[in-house]
Design a protein around this nucleic acid. Structure first.
Lengths: 150, 150
DNA sequence: TGCTATGTAGGAATCATTCCTGTCTAGATA
DNA sequence: TATCTAGACAGGAATGATTCCTACATAGCA
């Protein structure tokens, strides 16, 4: 999804986030991809247009946007932090081989609930379902592998 | 859950994991708690009995046990890796304030499925549901907070 | 237009995790 | 039981993502 600069400004103001060129660039890069980039991926994407941008600013901005609720952090295993510009409720397909993450929008999954009895006193705000498996290209790479020793 | 040394040995052999004192101690510590400790937590727990144990051995052993399927890694945000000795299918309640993780066993959640149409070519092996919210003690700490500005 | 809280750049510091290397040992074999 | 060797262990160094520090710059308000 590509956003007009005006739309970015509107969103920032709505969430009380100061508008700066750096932040707009970082947010635009994140919303413009579906690849769940790392902070360093974003740094590399953004420095093409803003060579002076500091890696530090990327981290700081991601922190600001996360606290403002404009950005979400996604994680697989204990790997490097990945970010997602899609903050509507959604779920993930995660490839256990290559680490690829795909978004899943599915109202049935949105409605998954936990019974009060099992919630151990938690006040639940939301949930997310993670599906783990092999993505299409990793499945193809595994065709050769013997199915009995896998 | 506390395990007899023999039971640990049986599990290790069943999973083709060499039996050493260090590994047994680490695994026992992990299975004996429900607190999802970090590698460093485990190091501190285990060095009480085994002062010579290296931090490196804890990491290495956790890697071995994870690959063998005896241990699972759990993560919240991009925080330090946490480990779980419970490898049966289960889900998690995660406190967004203090980071506490509680296991949830629930057959309804085990049966959550994704339609083929939405699976984007993934061969799904399993899934996990994460509920995010405030745990009981963090809720209590928040009683004072004004509900309209929280 | 000026003021000030906040953001930015860049470099240093932190710290979980991994790598390297020499020694040790589980467990298989004779 | 003694021997052998792949794999495990300890300890220290290296890595690398993230955070901290600080001086300078700027968004946005008055």
């Amino acid at each position: 999804m590509t956003l007009h600069p005006q739309e970015i400004e509107v969103r920032f103001r709505r969430h009380a986030v100061r508008v700066t060129r750096q932040r707009a660039a970082i947010y635009a890069a994140l919303v413009g991809t579906s690849s769940h980039p790392t902070a360093d991926d974003l740094y590399r994407m953004v420095t093409r247009q803003h060579p002076a941008m500091s890696r530090n600013t990327v981290y700081y901005t991601l922190g600001v946007l996360r606290k403002a609720g404009l950005v979400q952090e996604v994680n697989v295993g204990h790997e490097v932090a990945r970010f997602d510009g899609n903050v509507t409720m959604h779920h993930h397909l995660i490839c256990v081989q290559c680490g690829r993450i795909e978004d899943v929008m599915d109202q049935e999954l949105d409605q998954v609930k936990i019974s009060n009895r099992r919630a151990k006193g938690f006040h639940v705000l939301g949930h997310r379902v993670e599906f783990h498996g092999y993505c299409e290209s990793c499945r193809e790479g595994r065709r050769d592998a013997s199915p009995s020793h896998g």
